[in-house]
């Protein structure tokens, strides 16, 4: 058994795992109740699933140029998908698209209240003084 066969089998397994993560994300997107939980499901194939597929693809392609492109794809994906997730999560929180009963601790709410209180006291000082 040469190393190419090993690489082929490993690549197939990696791609299969990535496809399974995509299926998990699809199920989660259909079944989960609100935006934040759906984001939790949807970010699985965006980072980990795609990395698995890229690794598997690289194991099947086995050429330096392709591996470089695949590495760049993985890097860009890891750089950009958190930005999108951050923006979507922020907009979801700000527009109240979340289930308050399901949240155990809401640290952003405490921080927002604290900041609003500080800002309010500052504005009071500025207007009175």
């Amino acid at each position: 058994m040469s190393w190419t066969v090993v690489a082929d089998v490993a690549g197939a397994c990696f791609m299969l795992a990535g496809a399974l993560l995509c299926v998990v994300a699809g199920i989660g997107l259909v079944r989960l109740p609100d935006v934040l939980t759906r984001m939790h499901a949807a970010t699985k194939p965006q980072s980990f699933g795609l990395l698995l597929v890229l690794i598997g693809s690289g194991l099947w392609l086995r050429s330096a140029v392709d591996l470089g492109i695949l590495l760049l794809v993985g890097l860009f994906q890891l750089t950009t998908s958190p930005v999108a997730a951050h923006m979507v999560g922020r907009a979801a929180y700000r527009t109240g698209r979340l289930d308050r009963e399901d949240i155990v601790v809401d640290e952003l709410d405490q921080a927002l209240r604290k900041a609003a209180a500080e800002q309010g006291s500052e504005e009071n000082r500025r207007s009175t003084g």
């Binding site: 990535g18 949807a42 597929v53």
Partner: peptide
């Protein structure tokens, strides 16, 4: 928007698998 992101990820995985095959 979330679903669109996930769809882009699925399409990317599909393109990667197609490239490998």
């Amino acid at each position: 928007a979330v679903a669109l992101d996930a769809l882009v990820a699925v399409v990317m995985a599909g393109v990667g698998v197609q490239t490998a095959v």
